[in-house]
Structure formats: C-alpha cells, structure tokens
Design a protein around this nucleic acid. Sequence first.
RNA 1: GGGCGUUUAGCUCAGCUGGUUAGAGCAUCUCGUUUACACCGAGAGGGUCGGGAGUUCGAAUCCCUCAACGCCCACCA
Length: 882
Amino acid sequence: MNTAEMEKYFNPEEAEKKWYDIWDKGGYFTPTVDYSKEPYSIMIPPPNITGKLHLGHALVNTLQDVVIRMKRMQGYNTLWLPGTDHASSATEAKVVDMIKKEGLSKDILGRDGFLKRAWEWKEEYGGTIIRQLKKLGCSCDWTRERFTLDEGLSKVVQKVFIDLYNEGLIYKGERLVNWCPCCHSTLSDIEVEYEEEPSSLWYIRYWAKDKSFYLDVATTRPETMLGDTGVAVNPSDERFAKYIGKKVVLPIVNREIEVIADPFVETEFGTGCVKITPAHDFNDFNAGKKHGLEIIRVIDEDGKMTDLVEKYKGMDILTARKLIVDELQELGVLVKIEPYTHNVGKCYRCHHTVEPMVSKQWFVKMESLAKPAIDVVKNKEITIYPERYEKTYFHWMENIQDWCISRQLWWGHRIPAYYCKKCGKIEVCAEKPTKACACGCTEWVQDEDTLDTWFSSALWPFSTLGWPEETEDYKYFYPTSTLITGNDILFFWVARMIFSALHQTGKIPFHKVVLNGLIRDAQGRKMSKSLNNGVDPLDAIRDYGADALRFSLLQGLSLETDTRYSMDRLDIAKAFINKLWNSAKFVLNGIKDIDYKTWNKADLQPEDKWMLVKLNKTIKDVTEELDKFEFGVALQKLYDFFWNDYCSWYIEMVKPRLYDENASSKKEAAYVLHYGLTTILKLMHPFLPFVTEEIYSRLSEDDTPLIVSAWPKAKDLEYSAEYENIELMQYFITSIRNVRANMNIQPSRKTALIFVTKEKGAFLKAAEPIFQKLAFAKSVEIRADKTGIPVNAISIESLVAAVYIPFEDLVDIEAEIKRLEVEKEKYEALIARVDNQLKNENFLAKAPADKIEGERQKKANYETLLASVNERLIALQPSKSA
RNA sequence: GGGCGUUUAGCUCAGCUGGUUAGAGCAUCUCGUUUACACCGAGAGGGUCGGGAGUUCGAAUCCCUCAACGCCCACCA
C-alpha cells in the first residue's frame, strides 16, 4: 500500500499514458499458446483504414475490451486480435479524390501507379484509427495486428477463391447486377439501399403494326423503353388473352416485340401490361430469360444512354427521360402521367442511384454454403445475442441469392483468373499461366477486377491466425470465443464469416455473437456529418478522459435498442470517477496507520458482515450479467452498490470506529474497507481500466497490476442475522432523517435523545455511535418498554423494535399528531386492500397457499403497526389539550 | 406487402418466467460547507406503466387489437 496522500483530483491524461504503456510493455495484451490454460479469443471487427474513430467504434471496442479484460482477470489466456480493413471502394474513392487535387486520375496513373499511391495513402492514414483505439484503452495484442490486404491474408483470399472455383462454387456468369455509375462498379444485393422517391407513372401505348389493336403499358422508367423486347401480361388475364403471341411495335425505335404471358405480372397494377426490358430490370431479366427475349442495353456503365438512338446517345438518364417522354407525346402514344412514389435503389457508399445492368461477373454460389450456416445457429453451436437476431439471420440465409463478388476497382484483392488472349479461355490460378492454351496461344491476361471487400473480411477469424497452415495460434485460439459487432453488419459480415468458416475450416468461426445497436443523438436522430450532431470521442477523451467516455457509453446500455447519447452522460461519468477517486482517498488515509492485515474474524462487527454479504451479492451479479453481455445492467448494479452501500452506508457507518482512538474493532473496519474497495476496483476495471489501475496501484499490497489480478469470487457467508439487523437499523435511521426533514427541525443538526424498546432494542443500543453519526442522536437509551419514556415523543415502530425521540424543543404535538394521522391512513388503506383480497373467495380457492398465508401475515403486521399508531394518537391527545 | 423492435416519472432507462405500497440516474424543490467527495450529503414532489378489449383470484408483466415512432426484408413495372 502506498501511503502517500492522493492528489485532489484524478488526472486522466497522465494515468492513460502511464498505464497503457506499462500494460503494453508488460506484455499483458500478448498471450502465448499454453495448453494448461483455457484460451479466450476475440477478433476485432476490422475498422476501415479510411476511418476516424467515431462513437460507434468507441462503443463496440469498449464492449470487446470489457469482455476481454474480465476474461483475462478470470485466468483465461486471452487474445484480442486487432487489425484494419482495406475497404476497397471507400479507400479507392479517397485516393481518387486525393490525386484529383493534383490534377491526376486513375487513367493517367495507370493501375500500378494508382496502387502505389493507394499504399502510400494507407501508410500515412491507415494507422490513425489504431492509435485512437489505444487511446480508448483497448487491450489488443498489437504484435498480432493484421491488415486484410497484407501478404498473408492476400494469399488466403487467393487460395479460397481458387478452391471455390475448382469446387464449382465460384462461377463467372452473365447476369443482371446492381451497378453504381458513380463508383463505376457492381454492388452486391445488400450494398443497395432503397429509398422512397416521388416520381411518375407514365402510360405508353404500343400499337400493333396493322393498328388492329394496342396495349397500354405503365412504367416508372420510360427511357428504358428503347430496350424493350417484349410486353408481358398475366396468363389468366382475360382482357389480354387474345393478344398473347401477337406483336406490337415499339414507338421511336419501331421494333416489333412479342406479347408474352407470365404470372409475375399483377393484373391489378397499372394497365395489367408490363413492358419488358431484360437489360435493366430484375423481373424483366428473368422473364426475358424464360421466354428467350433479346437483351438490349439502353444504359452504359457511366449511366449514359447507349447508341440505340443516335440523338439520345451519351445523354444522362434524366435528360433522356424528359426528351423521350416529349417524343412519345408528339407521337401521340403517351396516354397519361400519374404521380407515383416508389423505391429507388441507392449505392450504400455514395448514394448514387443504382442501375440494374446486364454484365458478366463473378459469383459465389450460395445454396450449398447457406445450409450448414443455418444449422449451426439452429442447433446453438453459435448463439446470437440478442436472440431475436437469429430469426433475422435465418430469414436472410434461407432466401439468399448468389453473391456478386467482382468489383471494377483496383484497390483490393485482384481476381486470380487469367484469360487466353486469343480464345478467351479462363484459367484460375495463383500465378500467370506459363503453358500454352489449348488454342495454341501463350498470352494470358489477368482479370482486371478485384474482389468485394467483404470477401476477405469473411475469412478474418481464421486468416488472421495463419490458416491454412496448422499454426500454433490457429490450433489454440480457433474457433474464437465471441464476436462483438454492430447489428448493421449481420449480413455483410457475420453471416458470411459463418458460411465461409464452415466451408473452409470445417469449424464455426466463433461460439457467440454479440450485436450492439446504433448510437443516436439526444433526439434519437442518427449522428451524421450533415446534421453535425455527432460527438467526437477524441474530444470526449481529451476533455473527460477515456474512462469517462467508456462509462458514458456503457451506462444504461441495452443491446436490444439503439442508444440515445448526449454530452451530459460524460458529466455523470466524470462525477462517478471523482466519487471513486475520493472514496479511495478516504480509505487510504483512514487505514494507513492501522495494521488491518492482522484482523480477526471474531471481531467483525455487524456492519462489516453486512458489507461482506452485499459485496458477495455484487460479485455474483456483475459476473452473471457480464456473462450474459448485459453491460448496462452489470454497470448499474456495480454503480448502485458502490455509491449507496459502500460509500453512503458502509463508510459512514465505520467512521466512528476509525476516528475513535479506543474503538476495539478498528482493524476489522480497515480490513473490510480495504477489501471492499479492492473488490470494487477489480469489478470496475473492465469498465474503467485507467482510474481503477491507478487507485489499485496505491492500494494493493503486491506488485501485480490490476489488469492481471484475479477476478473476485463470491464466498459462502453465514451472516444473515447481522445482515437483517443492519437493514433494520437502516430503516430506523432513514425514518428518523425522514421525520426530521419533513418537520423541518431547526437547527437541522440539533441532536436528540433516542429511546429504543422491544426485542431488537439491544442491537440498536449497540449501534449508538452509528445513530450519533447518521441520525443526530445525543445518545441511545434502551428501555424494557414504554414506561418512563416521555409521552411527548416522536415514535417510529417496526414489529421488532421501536424508537422514541422526545420532543423537547424539536417539534410540537400538532405536527406529530398530523404525521401519525397520515401513517394511520396509510396503514388503513393497506389493510383495506389486503382485507379485500382475503375476502375474495376465488383468491382463497385458487391462489397458492403460501401466497394466502403471506397476505394474512401482512394483514396481521399492518394491524399491529396500526394499533401502535392509534395508541400513540390516544396518548398524545391529552397532552395536546393540557 | 412481410417481419422485428420501442412506447413506464419532465428526460434517459430498469422492472426475468404474472403476486408486497411500480424503481434508479439526471432534472426540479427543501435543508445542509459534519475532518473522502458541493463532481457532495440528507430529504421531497412527480407515473391510472401508449389506447382499447381479453385471460386470470390477481396484469407494467401473458393473449388479441389499434395507434405512434423506429429498424430490417421484399420490390407491383
């Protein structure tokens, strides 16, 4: 124990620097494989290298740190493996922006030149978020840090791609894909976000060549009509049955297209006739394929019109739309325009409208991969917290589509596929083929595309451990224990890790998945740059400290819901840390001259035992709640225990013993104070690592830092009698304070004589110093009964004890009578309620016996107490009139 | 269109498998500078638990329904 006086205030900045350095250099973050110890491993959700720490990162990483710190203290061999994600499209966009400022472009630099710049960018900015995680206190093993595009991981990605291709689970196919003209790349289904937009529904008339009939179609995209290759009606729709198989002429381009029947057409919507543009609509593509319709592209990769009609060539979509509608109007085939609101797909990165487009792309075949991934969650090999997300997961997995993995970007893992320059034959292999193609050609060209960034993230839990080599780390730490991440990437990442891990390693990637919600502003809005309502965690750390930031994120946290965050959470956090600091200051100072290590169990006082029981309960609660990932509840229980039980009650109760030179059980008080605070620091350490370590370093008797000290264990204690007595004493103290405050006794600290009676009177008498300290007692006098106690007294009764405080000049009779009358009414109401219950025959017939007995007991107790109140009222009446 | 979540004190939220007088923090008000802490202490006020109906001896808790807000999935052109 360090007996030097503690500083007035905790200095977060100093402690953060000092302790992070000691922990890191001490190697506490870095496990070594040791089969005598049980492993516990967490893989960080790798933040993007473009990222700057925001509150969401701060939260998810604090959660991981809380878990890993607790497990470390519980004796597990813990690994929290950190790293970053290359984030293909986000990073590429940043680099493009950067070179644009120099007047450069991807085309000018070329692939190699561009990648050189991208790597430079990564070296310069990619470490930012890692440094910020360290400021938060994250106890990651930095010696094992990985990057999704580093050499080892790139090899894994390549191997997995080649294997899946050889197994027939990756294929290249011409399909309709989501295309972002702004990013100039494909997107997977889940990278498209739908937004409602007001638009119009245009009705266009398609005449038969001989004008014998016409069909009206309704569309939200009139410009795509140039690429129509059919009109579809529902086969059961009698209105149009006679036209099926006939042809109509497409206006403007004057192409004849066939009328087909397909059940996907809703007879109720629009006119019941749908124009079919297989090149630019998912339904139309499927229908076109089914009916063998031609695919004609209207829109190109830049989101401009193709050369189908010369005058529209190169035009952007909205301009072309307007002109085409005008032309249709002139041709007299625009029937009507209705206002219409519909959902438009947007790119999740740049928010540009996504164009469905026919393209030849690489896909992962999902059907056979999805099934085992569903099973491991169904049979609870993997548990998801909160549980309800399992349903979401199943729904998605059961309806999963093939995954488009090729991206027309340069920053990422280049697809290991080579094409014969002459015949186009595909070879999928790690290195450029040296052999000649069957056609005799020896020139091979590598696919220009890279892989979806999530393809490499999906392999993260095992690629980071050295798989496919049977490395020591892989054998020991895999499958990992728990994955903690935001619920927004359940599909993007979690689901894909599960099926990838099962297929590649034959094992689950992790046992538990913990999903946290979003952090919103005080009004419940998303934090965004445009609203400028974000809280910068680095500002919070600078102004309040990392511990305060962590506390502010965890307090009241529930995984079930999003969190509303406002700056006053930081003030609450700071107040709490200050309280912790001050309590430690008091304890250290109070016990420094006491040889508490030679304490005697036999000399423990009732309040000591009460404290130990409460402490035990808290150890149990906090551990259990954290095991359930109930971070908010765990912290709340610890908060309440520390602030109320330990500080407000226990410290106050033992002060008389510490201050009194002659007190007989000083050692025991000092011991329990020390032991209690030590335990609190341990339980609190995962939440507030820095301040707890700082205090512990001054309080602890050995050199082991708190970060690797043993997590507290609850003990078997038989102190229920003492516990009950202290609770009773607290009832009286609270009641006395209550009465005094309500009667506005002046001066408020004026002391008074206290008489105690009934069976627990002796115990209360023994607690006299506590009553003096906490209930303004002059002294506590024990009496066998009321005889001899002045009638004019405030009375507080329980079943087992009674307290009388003579009025003297404290209060007048009127006030006490009034108070007793309120008491009387309260008991009468309670009795009436119980009475009612006990008169209810149904209750008596159907409620369990112990419940009925409980109600009877309650009634008897209330009646006893009511009788006392009445007796007091009667006793006081004569005095009043006198 | 389908699914999920939320709705409890002015604000942020606890209240598990139905059973004492529905809790905490913040805010408000009163009193208090007692030798850890005014980033404190002691007290007080404040809720017919979103509406309605139901099951039950008994409902904040279970069932149904409606409403508001939010999220996810689907995409009828």
